[in-house]
Write a protein that binds this DNA or RNA. Sequence first.
DNA 1: GTCCAGGATCGGA
DNA 2: TCCGATCATGGA
Length: 301
Amino acid sequence: MIHSSVNSLEVEFSGYVNLEASLGCGQAFRWHRAAFPGRRDMQVSYKGVIASTAIFLGQKDSRTSTVQVALAPGIDGSAAKNKVLDYCSCSDDVEAIERSLTMKDDVMARAVEFGSGLRILRQDPWECLASYILSVRKNIPAIKCNVADLAQTLGRQAGLGEFQFPTAEAVLEAGSDVLRECGCGFRDRYLMDAAARVAWGDLDLEAVAQLPLEEARDALMKVKGVGPKVSSCVLLFGYHRLEVFPVDVWIGRVMSRFYLNGSCDLRAAADEGIRRFGPLAGYAQEYLYYYARNHFSAVNL
DNA sequence: GTCCAGGATCGGA
DNA sequence: TCCGATCATGGA
């Protein structure tokens, strides 16, 4: 039975896609599990927003190259199909990436096997920047709640009961008090600084895409509340700079235990990740993160 | 009630 | 350059 209030279609990738790993690995905060409309044969099903349009993404099998899509009526299906392909980085040769990383070492081989089909997403740079500013010193459920509150309070409707991520202008106009009410906490002034710079043109997020890596990082780190880790995440998840290696507490633990003989220096962890995994450091980091979060607790890692 | 979270900033050595 | 205290809030 096909749900009458949505349009369903199928998107075919050239390589395989693991929707659960890609949407559930913590790189994006606005996807949430939701039953795929009109179908019960989906092993995995999420609802979220891509480029201001609400969308269901589903998969019957995590190791295939097809993704099922459902859209609100009136949404152009072929345009949405292209957005999904772009958002999920269809042009990344995941088989070559995984083959290359698997040969690095046994730990990485296990992480790749577990998260096979994981895609580094191409998120909107502004949403990515804002989200990771808000991620500082929060757990993932709290980040998701914070971002959802912001969208519902300041974002426009996206269809299917979802909301667009608020623009920099909307955040700026709302002000710190509203941000606090959405759960931003002490990060309110950081998000305000980011919104002001973007809205006023002091930070040109489109121009950042054209900059050499370190210049792009410097531009992002001018924003209050954006340090080495947040800037790395924005470069990786918002600009697809696959050569960066974001180090959070979990990657720090992984690197300390498996690659640095117990050393807990965060900068050393980032350097070692880049040295070891080179142009695929970003993918390596995300496989390690997804693997660690699903196999360890904070105390035994 | 306690602990900690996909860290960054600031001031003082 | 490096170290430690501090930040506001909620989930576990």
